[in-house]
């Protein structure tokens, strides 16, 4: 299973590097979003709580504009049948999950970098901040991957993606926003423990359910 999954993941990376289809669009998307926020803010000073919220809004929307491609592209190119023949559903899902998590990690890293450079925000405790970003990244990409599989089989592939993923992501986003805010304020790892617990257990539950439900979506 791992071997097949890694092969699928490698295939996706190779096609991404050759075409640079999503990454170019995504980088521009993030730059545009952050400049809109910068223009509309002007000289306004924001509180740490607002900064945390803004950061996760940008992360959510840039992820939801890029992560659906893994499955939608297979349907558009008509290659999903070949994939069905050559690999088991579980390894397809695992491969796509690894790819999406990596892509999402790159996106989030870029968002955070740009955000810290352009916005006037000081992170009091950097370690916990990165922990929340990385853990949130795992949760985000696992929900986004199973929803991507869902919408790739439906007729409207674009607008439905954030609509479907947001209700599922709300518990995760609330705790990551809260955790990010606390880390801006300088809380240590012990104060963030309950947030971390929720994020980790949420991710585990979603990934387990996705593995059980993916067969049904994939073999329709």
């Amino acid at each position: 299973m791992w071997k097949q999954a890694l092969a699928i993941c490698k295939k996706d990376f190779r096609s991404e590097i050759r075409t640079r289809y999503s990454i170019n669009g995504l980088i521009m998307f993030i730059i545009v979003t952050i400049s809109i926020i910068k223009f509309s803010l002007g000289e306004e000073k924001l509180s740490n709580e607002l900064h945390a919220g803004l950061l996760w809004i940008i992360i959510f929307f840039s992820n939801s504009s890029g992560l659906s491609r893994v499955f939608v592209a297979e349907e558009d190119r008509g290659t999903s049948f070949v994939l069905k023949l050559t690999a088991s559903p579980k390894s397809v899902f695992l491969g796509k999950l690894i790819f999406n998590t990596t892509l999402s990690f790159v996106i989030n890293l870029f968002v955070v970098l740009l955000f810290l450079v352009t916005m006037d925000v000081k992170i009091a405790s950097f370690g916990p901040f990165m922990l929340i970003i990385v853990l949130g990244n795992f949760g985000l990409s696992s929900v986004m991957t199973i929803i991507a599989a869902l919408i790739s089989k439906s007729n409207s592939k674009g607008s439905l993606y954030p609509v479907l993923s947001f209700p599922l992501l709300l518990p995760l986003l609330l705790s990551t926003i809260n955790g990010t805010w606390l880390s801006f304020e300088g809380s240590g790892i012990t104060e963030l423990l309950s947030e971390v617990q929720i994020i980790v257990s949420y991710t585990i539950v979603i990934i387990t359910a996705s593995f059980l439900l993916f067969d049904i979506i994939w073999n329709e």
Binding site: I146, L150, K153, S154, N155, S156, L160, L164, P167, L168, L170, P171, Y202, V205, I206, A209, S210, L213, I216, I217, E220
Partner: peptide, 22 residues
């Protein structure tokens, strides 16, 4: 957003289960 009846049934059931567990 889904036309085929069987696909619609599958996708919406999966979504209902996913929503319920969160």
């Amino acid at each position: 957003a889904t036309e085929s009846e069987e696909t619609r049934a599958k996708l919406s059931s999966v979504y209902a289960v996913l929503a319920f567990i969160t």
